[in-house]
Design a protein around this nucleic acid. Structure first.
Lengths: 214, 214, 214, 214
DNA sequence: TATGAATGAGTTTTCATTCAT
DNA sequence: CATGAATGAAAACTCATTCAT
């Protein structure tokens, strides 16, 4: 049942900022920050150009909102992925990477990653936000889990941070491939499938007793 | 008596284009295409703004030159890396990835990768050039080698193209990390070391008889 | 209390294009197309430079608008001049040329003529518009009327198109004199008087029975 | 037999200024002053751009030379046309206008006329040169001859200066038509034929005893 | 003299931001 | 709150002019 009272053709003003950010995400992903035009964002959000300035002081502010708004959800996703899986280390990892692969495959996270990479030099404070609040913690969590497993004797010796990179890099590459080469007709990757095969590879490569791996 | 100091005019037609492209690479890497200013490129090349237009018709042309000029050298590097290593499949791979890790660590290739990712939507024809002439062939070569090794029974079953991604993705991540997060003070990665540990991981994960791996 | 003075922003969308075209006519007449500066047009129209681009995509577009907007009015003037006069052929002609002489003397038509002549090579499509929609039809109409009068035996034999040129050329010369030499202090011409004397000359020169001419 | 000593592929330096002016005439006629490019003039003259500055200080100077160099020859032509014909007033006129019609039909005079009209506002001193040294004297000479004939009773009463305009205007129109509308495919005029028919018209229209006209 | 690469001031055009409505 | 016309500060690009060769 629809909520009554509000005519559906009249958008709630409270929704405006989100709609603008959503439209901005699309335009920024498409064009990058500098080439994005406020007109396009306004049109995408179904709003006048002037209205944007009721919610955001500058174009940079919109950009900041786009990038920052996607830190928290992604952080939550990582946390949930970690928390929601019990059991053995391999099982945990399968769940984590499998979950992440679906997240990056379906959420705007992939697009945001591309934006952050492309604009890190022009917006270092945003790169820092993403690094400090999402990427570094996530990497640290994985490195920590790996190191713990190494300490338990489950994993081989080696640099745990590098092992973490070995683990997640294909997800990054899959996402960037989708953003970069798929639009021009390149053969796409099935990111969940890629992730699945890669986790097994990784486990065999790092487990102290790889025979145990399926 | 000769006038001292810097003459206002310098004639160096032959060198100019390269100098401009080199300066442009830096500015484009730093700012992206749209935010790059001709003034900055000119200043970087030690040339007046007008002089640039003696060699390039538009800003886009400079950009194209930057991206295209870096396809061939990189392709050559990949070819050499493949060709210069003999021996067993593991040895070949160690040589290839080790070589590549040094290339991306030291050449402007990493910066170009970032540029291509960031501007692929605005310059699809450049994304296509990079894909068709460099990325796709390189990936195909690796997939082919992997598939051949699988056929020989040296490697486990699995999607060879995905295995190739599993192999090279950490290099890409290392490069992008350097471009994105190292400038803001993040802990850097030692790309050759990362590559070395990763190859061993990969080999253990894919070889049919992993015990053989060191 | 109302704020006094000139507000920085004025909203007059409906009037703007005409104001810009009017200002542009003046500047183009004065300087020609290439030497005309958008700043001058903007200043003449009491508008910022950017505002022009709300209504015209390029400087050329403004020029086109100036030239094309003056085809239709002039065509109408010719038509009216032809239509509004009855009576004998001499009376018709006196009315037509007399009317035209006032038109070119008072409307911007004269200035436009100068512009079209000066820019015909750079804007051939505009020369074509002026030729096809105004000059050629008008000339054809006169030639036709002359030929008809010749067929009736009222006029002497001779090339009717050339007779038409003989008839209107002094008007053209009068206008161009005004645009070219009067501004530098040359003795001006009284175009209507010139036209009046010329029509009588022409009639005596072409009528089969010139005695009848006043 | 060719003059010896000078290889024909090596132009005499003394000719350079004229070659440049000749090339400039063409370019200025084609594009107008502002849109004319020194590169084009240099290319047309078979000279480097820098060489032009050995003979002319500025682009304006070249333009001045083009316009001024064509005053004297044309003045001479008018003088000769007037001087070379004896006999009755009608015969004189037939000779004069007939001669002029060939001059404007074949010499660059027509192109210069167009240039002077188009650039009179930007180069008032050139318009003045043309007016004071060529157009006004020529018009005065004709007016004077007409007034004298009127005093002799050969011509009807009327404004002699206006009669002069009635006489020469078709030549002007013929030339401008050629410059303006013929290039876009308009039906051209045979200027000498036009002139011939017009002179007879004019004579019949102005002679006190038109029966005498052929 | 002659060349043409190089300069830099000037012009068109864009677009984030403002503000009258 | 919302609109979108208007502003004005960039920024790409042009080309007359200069000058090292």
């Amino acid at each position: 049942m629809l909520p009554t009272g509000e005519p559906k053709f009249k958008r709630r003003k409270a929704d405006r900022p989100e709609e603008i950010v959503a439209a901005a995400l699309e335009v920024f992903t498409d064009k990058g920050f500098a080439a994005a035009r406020l007109d396009d964002i306004a049109a995408g959000a179904g709003v006048s150009k002037g209205a944007i300035y009721l919610y955001f002081a500058t174009k940079e502010d919109i950009f900041r909102a786009v990038v920052e708004q996607n830190v928290a959800p992604n952080l939550d996703l990582v946390r949930q992925a970690v928390a929601s899986h019990q059991g053995s280390f391999p099982a945990l990892l399968r769940g984590l990477i499998g979950g992440l692969s679906h997240v990056v495959d379906e959420s705007p996270a992939g697009a945001i990653v591309k934006i952050v990479i492309g604009e890190a030099r022009n917006f270092p404070e945003l790169a820092r936000v993403w690094h400090d609040r999402l990427v570094a913690p996530a990497l640290a969590a994985m490195s920590g889990a790996i190191a713990a497993a190494q300490a338990r004797g489950e994993l081989r010796a080696g640099d745990s941070r590098q092992y973490a990179v070995s683990l997640v890099a294909p997800l990054l590459m899959g996402v960037l491939w989708r953003e970069t080469f798929t639009p021009i007709g390149a053969e796409p990757f099935d990111i969940p499938a890629l992730a699945e095969q890669h986790v097994e590879l990784w486990l065999r490569g790092v487990l102290a007793e790889p025979e145990a791996v399926r």
